[in-house]
Simulated scan of single mutants.
Amino acid sequence: MRALDVDARRYAWCRGRAVWWLGLPIAALLEDMKGAVTEGQDGLVHRNARMIGQSCAVVLNLVLHHARPVPALRVQTPWALERVGGHPLGRECERLVRAGWEVPAQSLVERCERLVAEVRALVGDVPDPLVPEGYFPSLAAAREWLKLAELVGEEGFLPKEWTQEEGRNA
């Protein structure tokens, strides 16, 4: 049995967010990127490669350093890359963020697929919700992480708009 090297609240907060981030937003970026290559939309491929590099750096911070809180979007990238720069996956995140137009679109897709697979291996079993066989397992994983967060008294990771009761904002 392996013991946690961090308190349960921080672990639940960080891991839950890492699973969520890797499960839906990063999966969607990668899926869009594949379609963009087919359609010759190199600008979208480069943009999504940068976004995947940034997002994977944040996920690595959550998993490796239990970094909390995640700063505002405008400073997330330098914050994340500085903290994971010494890790091989962190270096690949930075290379994707800085990739210029000389890098072919297909190469970026392959690099992003490899990075996402390696980050998934660190995070654990994160089913892809964008494929039929991963949809329900990804919902089950999110539910389990939300239960854990609630159990230890932490805020969940779903967007607030998804969890607010109707009429509260009226």
Rank of each mutant, 00 (worst) to 15 (best):
G153Q: 07
A28K: 11
A141Y: 00
Q106C: 02
A99Y: 00
P137S: 07
G23L: 10
G86L: 05
E92P: 05
W13M: 12
S138M: 12
G153N: 04
R83T: 08
E113M: 10
G167P: 12
M33T: 01
L139I: 07
Y135W: 07
L130E: 00
L64K: 06
D125G: 14
E150P: 02
W13D: 06
G167N: 12
P137D: 04
R168S: 15
M51C: 05
L130T: 03
E155L: 14
A149Q: 14
K147R: 09
L81E: 05
M1H: 12
R168W: 13
Q164E: 15
G167V: 12
A141E: 05
W21S: 12
A170P: 14
W145H: 10
Q164S: 15
R95I: 00
A12K: 15
R74T: 10
D7H: 08
V58S: 01
C56V: 06
M1A: 14
L139T: 07
L81Q: 07
R10Y: 05
E39Y: 14
E154N: 13
R15G: 09
Q106I: 00
E102N: 10
H87P: 01
A149S: 08
E144Y: 06
C112Q: 04
R98M: 11
M33N: 03
P88Y: 00
A72F: 12
N61G: 10
V63S: 05
T38S: 08
L148Y: 04
L60R: 06
L130M: 02
G53R: 13
G53N: 13
L62T: 03
V116T: 02
M51K: 07
A8R: 12
K160E: 13
R114N: 07
P69I: 15
N61D: 04
A3S: 09
A117D: 09
A36Q: 02
V84I: 03
A80H: 06
T163K: 13
P132F: 12
